[in-house]
Structure formats: C-alpha cells, structure tokens
Design a protein around this nucleic acid. Structure first.
Length: 599
RNA sequence: GGGCGCGUAGCCUAGUCUGGAUAGGGCACCGGGUUCCUAACCCGGCGGUCGAGGGUUCAAAUCCCUCCGCGCCCGCCA
C-alpha cells in the first residue's frame, strides 16, 4: 500500500529504478484487490527483468498460486484483469502462468535520456565513494615477452578494474613483480656470464624463430626456455643457480638482477599498453622481505597450533581439515634453511592488500586454483576474517590444443597477434577510405586491430577453455570490437552532420514510436543493471555482450529510421542518437577499446 | 588415483550462481538490400537429444547422483 512516504533520496542512476518502484506499487495494490496478501519483497524477487518476450518485465505466478488457492493461469489472468492503468505501464497481459508488463516507452526514454544527458561519461555507473578495491592481475614472471596464452589475465583484470571504477569504487590495479625465486634468477644467471661462456645448448637460442618486435623483453628473455631445459641435467649449474637465488632472497643479489627484471618488465608493459592495459602500482616481491611483512607472517604462522616442524627444521601447517587434494595434508611455508616460499610471501602480500582495501580481487590462471584454496586455508588458520576474490581463467591453448610453448614454437606472441590485427585493419581502412593520409590510417588501424583482439578475448567467459584461432581473433565483423567502434563512429557522424551542439534539449520522448527506436531505448536503459551484475559476478564477458547488443540495436535503428532528414522528429531522434553515441562510447571505455570518431 | 574447471547447431559463444513461457547471439552457408545520415551494415532462410544416463520438482541447459571426454593441479617450484 504505502506509497513512499519517505523522502525520494538521491535519484538512482538506473532509469529503471523509478519505473520498477511504480510497477511494484501497482502490483501490490493489484494483488490486494484480488485478495493476495503477498509481500512486496516476494513480488520483487519474482520479477523477471530480462523477461518477457511479450513485454519488458514478466511475473511468473507459479509460486503464488498455491497459497492463493487458484491455478497459475487463473491467478495470472486475475492479476492482469485487476490492474489499474498507470503512467509507466502500457499494457498488462496474462499468458499462461505469466503476467507480462510492457513499459510506456516515452516514460522509459525520458528517464533514460535525462540520465545520459546528466551523467555523460558516467552513465551506466554509480557515484562514489564506494569501497576501495585492489585488483591484481597479469603479474607474469618477468622472463620474456607475453604470449597470447596468458593475455586473458590482463584483459579480464583491466576490465574488472574499469567496471569497478565506473561503479564508484576506488580502484588500484597492481602488478606483483616476481623478482625472487628461480625463474627470474635464471635470466640473471645466464646474462651474468660472458657470451663466450654460455653453454652451447643455450647459445643455440639464436636458432629459434624470433618474435617480431625487438625489445628488452624479447632480447633478455630469449635464453630463458633453454636455460630452463639446460638446468634439468646439469647439477653444477643448478648449484650455481641455487646460490644465486639465496643471495637474491637475502638481499645481496647482483645489481644486474633488478636491472634485468626491470627491463623485461618494461617490455611486457609496452605490449600491454597497446591494448590499454596499465597498472597503478607495482609490488616487488622482494619488498615483502625487506619491509618485514614476511617475517611477521612467519612469526604468526609459527605460533599457530596447527604449525608443525618437519625433520630438517622446515615448518608446515597441517591443513588436513580443509580437504585439499594434496598427497600430504601438510603444507610447508618455511624451508629447512629458514627461507620463505612463494606461498608464504603471497600470504604476506594478500594480508597487506586486505589491510589496505575493502575488496581484493586476483585474476589467476587455472594452474593457481589450488594455490588460491591454500591461501584461503592459511587465512582461515590465521583468523583473518576476509578473503580475496579469485577470478580464475583458463589459459588460451595453442592452435591445435595444448599449452603454448616457446620452445615448441606453438606460442603466439601477443605483439605478433596485435601486429597482424593492425595490418589487417590497415587494409580494411584503406579499402574503405581512399583519401585517408597515412598517419591517420595508422592511428585508426592500431585502434581497430587492438580493439578486435581485446574484444575477442573479453567476449568469452574466463573459465571457458579456448584454443587460439587466428581467423576468429582477427574478425572485424559480427560480434566484434570493430563492429562496436563502427557503430559509435556512425552515431558520431550523424551528430556531426546535424550541426547541432546541444542534443538533449527540446526532444519529445513520445516520438519514439517505431520498433527500432523502442528497442534502442531499452538497450540503453539496460546498461546500469548490466554493470551492477558484472560488478557482482565478475562476468566480464557480459560487458562485451552488452556492447554488441547495443551496437546491434543502433544499426537496426540506423537503417530503419532517418534522422537528419526527419521533420518534426528530428530533434528527438538526434537526442536518441546522442544517447546511443554516449553509451557506446562509455562501453568502449569500459572495455579499454578506443573510441573512433571516423573509421 | 584424488580435487577442481569445462562440455550448448559444422565452428565460436550467452544463459547455469538465484530452476520458470517456443534456449539468445556471432561465424560459415543460401536468398535479398547501397540515387538516402559510413554496406566493418541491414532483412530473410538453414541449422539444437543444452556430453550420456538417472533423480528432485508443477517446471531442469540451470539443482542432486553416476558415468564419459578434454584441461589443470596434487613441490621445502613460482
């Protein structure tokens, strides 16, 4: 009953919010009239907002039918019949056990365009200050250039961060730089030897096909896979490496070490920057040793009742009660020689993150799944109330299946993929736009090519196993990044040619009477809800899905509804185009794909 | 062997958390569309035992059980 006697409060950034409130008010009243004492919360939870084929919102009444003592179709019909006309709901109809509500387009359009006009680049998101968040992603070992097997990490992480930021969270992205341990030490080990003292097996690195770009990550990462293989059957080298690892962990590593890690990392970051992936903070693993974080964790762990000392003095936690799929229920966190392990440092790192942010999100490959569970168990043991949120993705497999391997030649370098995509885009641009100058063509090609790659990876759920496919990765049609960019450019073109400078003045939402216009209004209106769901579920593929839906509806509208040549409706249609343009742009931003005014 | 993830048309994929109406898209294929705001587009068609089997339910792609296939992990590596 009670219409909101409370103050309206701040306007919701979601155009559907006030309409759904009204719908629920009326639904409650309608339920009352037919003697249903159903609570508003129940009704609300039953509403299907993506719902109706035959409307905008659907209410399945099965669950209400029993208590009401009537058959579902009867109840649905009764509810529909007792409906009183309202300004938001255009029609209410019963179909079987469903009641379908169709919203008055003009009302939805008004709520939507007002918000797009007022919020601009912030349309779709929410105002802060929200919680603080740390999103850690990529964090690949600095041992060589990135290949596409792991590029999902950065794209997922960066998109999650962008969405969280749009939703009002205060987000810091972090790259955890592994400068400790064997992997990066192998690089230093080999490069600290004069070239004429390299083992021949490693010097043979020169025979491997070269990645297309020559940068420090390529150059210094080159011997890595060969060092790795060489070590397997050279105990003397292993001993050298072990000594080096220990010196590094003790803080006495050669200056070359940090220098090489930094150079390789810079190369990897240059590649990531091409797809608009950048980081706010870099946390060097070694800093956790020097700032005492690891010692402090070690002390806490050693004091735990579940802490055990192994024969050689190593320390472990008995995690038997967690049912981890380990051969032993003991998980070692400190070596016999007193040094720490990756796991221990990661515990320290996460405790640090959880102290400084409300939400801690990690993007991890599926090979880290058990590691993530182990971390959780450690936090439980330590009495830490909070947990990181783990987003687990599957590595992209090589073309025929199987892991991408540098030595086996099945690895596809990310730069190589991007170069190919850009090259193909350049061809497309030239075909369509002959008068374009070279610099402009390059700029557009880079945006289109990299956008295609980023979208291609983003569109698939992270946990889905995928094998790399050049043809699909380089597609510029259909469900693709360029399609969204193209739609944005088309909308921009209309706005430009209109000669107008202000689009959200003098429009009349009652003009949106054709199906394409109604559909376009509805997709635009859907963005805030979509982003709320993505924030909660981390299903970043839905951002790409939404972008495609929006572009799709815009193109249908574009073909069916003339804008510039319209008379009475021109202003209103321009407003709708402007709203679509803004929204497409906002979604491109969320995906880290360049907006192009022309293409 | 154990644990976890994945399995939706020829190919790729959304939907699975929170069960609801004839399972949405895209590619490919077939047929149309450009004197008109960018054809990287639009319209139409073809194509589905949602891995298999059982169970729960008024209702299962979705929940439970069993099995099959693929992947990953089960280190005093990271």
């Amino acid at each position: 009953m009670a219409k909101s006697e409370s103050s309206p409060g701040p306007v919701s950034p979601d155009p559907w919010a006030p309409i759904l409130e009204e719908l629920l008010d009326e639904l409650e009243a309608s339920a009352d009239r037919i003697g249903l004492g159903t609570e508003r919360g129940v009704l609300e939870s039953l509403l299907d907002l993506e719902g109706g084929r035959q409307g905008d919102v659907a209410l399945p009444v099965h669950r209400l039918a029993g208590p009401a003592g009537r058959a579902p179709p009867v109840l649905a019909a009764d509810l529909a019949k007792s409906w009183s006309p309202s300004r938001s709901i255009e029609s209410v109809s019963a179909d079987g056990a469903f009641v379908n509500f169709r919203v008055v387009t003009a009302r939805l359009a008004r709520e939507t365009l007002e918000r797009v006009a007022a919020r601009g680049a912030r349309y779709g998101g929410q105002d802060g200050p929200g919680p603080t968040a740390i999103v850690e992603h990529t964090s690949a070992n600095p041992t060589g250039p990135l290949h596409v097997g792991r590029v999902r990490n950065g794209i997922i992480g960066d998109t999650v961060a962008r969405v969280a930021r749009a939703m009002g969270e205060s987000v810091t992205t972090q790259y955890y730089v592994d400068d400790l341990g064997r992997q990066s030490a192998m690089i230093t080990w080999i490069w600290s030897k004069p070239a004429d003292q390299w083992p021949t097996e490693i010097a043979a690195a020169a025979a491997v096909p070269e990645p297309p770009v020559r940068r420090d990550d390529v150059l210094y990462g080159r011997p890595y896979p060969f060092v790795s293989a060489y070590l397997k059957d050279h105990p003397d080298a292993q001993a050298e490496l072990a000594a080096l690892v220990q010196r590094i962990e003790e803080g006495h590593g050669p200056p070359l070490h940090r220098e090489l890690v930094g150079k390789i990392l810079a190369g990897m970051l240059a590649t990531l920057a091409r797809i608009n992936v950048r980081f706010d903070t870099f946390v060097w693993e070694s800093s956790l040793l020097t700032d005492g974080s690891v010692d402090s964790v070690l002390r806490r762990l050693n004091g735990l009742p579940s802490s055990i000392t192994e024969e050689n003095g190593a320390r472990a936690l008995d995690l038997g009660r967690y049912g981890l799929p380990k051969e032993s229920s003991r998980v070692v966190y400190q070596r016999g020689d007193g040094t720490s392990l990756y796991l221990t440092r990661d515990v320290a790192y996460h405790l640090k993150k959880m102290r400084s942010a409300d939400r801690v999100v990690d993007v991890l490959g599926q090979d880290h799944r058990l590691h993530a569970r182990t971390l959780d168990a450690f936090f439980e043991e330590l009495g830490e109330p909070r947990r990181p949120i783990f987003i687990i993705y599957q590595d992209i497999l090589a073309h025929g299946g199987g892991r991408m391997s540098t030595r086996g030649g099945s690895a596809v370098w990310l730069d190589e993929l991007l170069d190919d995509a850009v090259e193909r885009a350049r061809g497309e641009v030239r075909d369509r736009w002959e008068s374009i100058d070279a610099a402009e063509a390059d700029r557009i090609a880079e945006a289109v090519g990299t956008g295609a790659v980023r979208f291609h990876i983003l569109r698939i759920a992270p946990e889905k196993p995928v094998a790399f496919d050049w043809e699909q990765a380089l597609s510029f049609e259909g469900r693709s990044g360029p399609f969204v960019q193209y739609s944005y450019a088309r909308a921009g073109s209309i706005l430009r040619k209109s000669g107008a400078s202000e689009f959200f003045v003098g429009y009349d939402p009652a003009h949106y009477t054709s199906e394409p216009e109604k559909a376009l209004v509805r997709v635009i209106a859907r963005l805030p809800r979509t982003l709320r769901v993505v924030l909660r579920t981390n299903h970043v593929q839905n951002v790409a899905g939404y972008a495609h839906d929006l572009a799709d509806e815009f193109n249908r509208f574009y073909h069916a509804v003339p804008v510039l040549s319209a008379d009475a409706e021109r202003t209103s249609r321009l407003a709708l185009v402007a709203a679509a343009h803004q929204t497409l742009g906002n979604v491109l931003d969320l995906m880290g794909i360049e907006r192009l005014e022309r293409m």
